[in-house]
Design a protein around this nucleic acid. Structure first.
Length: 204
DNA sequence: TGAATGATGCGCT
DNA sequence: GCGCATCATTCAT
């Protein structure tokens, strides 16, 4: 019988409290079986957006055509277009009806580095995916990838039993409201974190 | 080393 | 119209 070396994350993983998932998703791998071949990367930085009591969330003011994936089933993607030129990739958490999502902000390239490089002008490989806009640019992720089931075969996350030792919690980047919330989480041992600041843990 | 700014399109008030 | 879950470049210190 075929032995599954790595476990794909399924619905139960996403159907949980968002802040728990933020911790758990670090060190997992995102897999994208694109038309250009298999792409993969290790997740090292994320942010939580939980509509309840969070003015910074797109879903805070209720459901609209754009944000409706956030109100839907957990384990689906939510991709939006921002600043006239970038996309951001999120995945939906919490039970259906509770609007929440986690923004992918940083990852370490694994498979498909040549494809990532072809979409980018950066010098170092760890710079290919270190930012939400750069992640989507290198992966060539856009609105076509909005609201798709991440327990399917196209895009999904994989558990490779890797532990993340130093998780830092900090305030989120680039928002003006809700800054008191320490809802950004990153792997302090990774080079592919977009910015290392606002840490609430001692160390350099 | 950090602050300011331009690029650029769309959602929302 | 305004502002935005960004990035790369320019300018000031």
């Amino acid at each position: 019988m075929p032995h599954r070396k790595f476990n794909k994350l399924l619905r139960d993983f996403y159907n949980r409290p968002t802040l728990e998932i933020c911790h758990d998703i670090l060190g997992k791998y995102i897999i994208y079986n694109s038309s250009e071949g298999k792409l993969s990367a290790k997740i090292v930085e994320v942010e939580a957006y939980i509509a309840v009591n969070d003015p910074a969330s797109h879903a805070y003011r209720g459901k609209t055509e754009r944000n409706k994936p956030m109100f839907g089933n957990p384990g689906f993607s939510y991709v939006y277009f921002i600043y006239g030129m970038y996309h951001c990739f999120n995945f939906v958490t919490e039970p259906e009806g509770q609007a929440a999502a986690i923004l992918l902000r940083g990852a370490e390239p694994e498979e498909g580095i040549n494809f990532f490089r072809s979409n980018s002008k950066v010098v170092k490989d760890y710079q290919l995916l270190n930012g939400p806009g750069k992640f989507c640019r290198s992966f060539n992720i856009n609105l076509v990838h909005n609201n798709i089931d991440l327990t399917g075969e196209l895009i999904y996350f994989e558990d490779r039993n890797q532990k993340v030792k130093n998780i830092i919690e900090s305030s989120r980047i680039g928002i003006k409201s809700g800054q008191e919330k320490l809802w950004r989480f990153y792997d302090n041992d990774s080079m592919a974190v977009s910015v290392k600041k606002n840490r609430n843990k001692v160390g350099v």
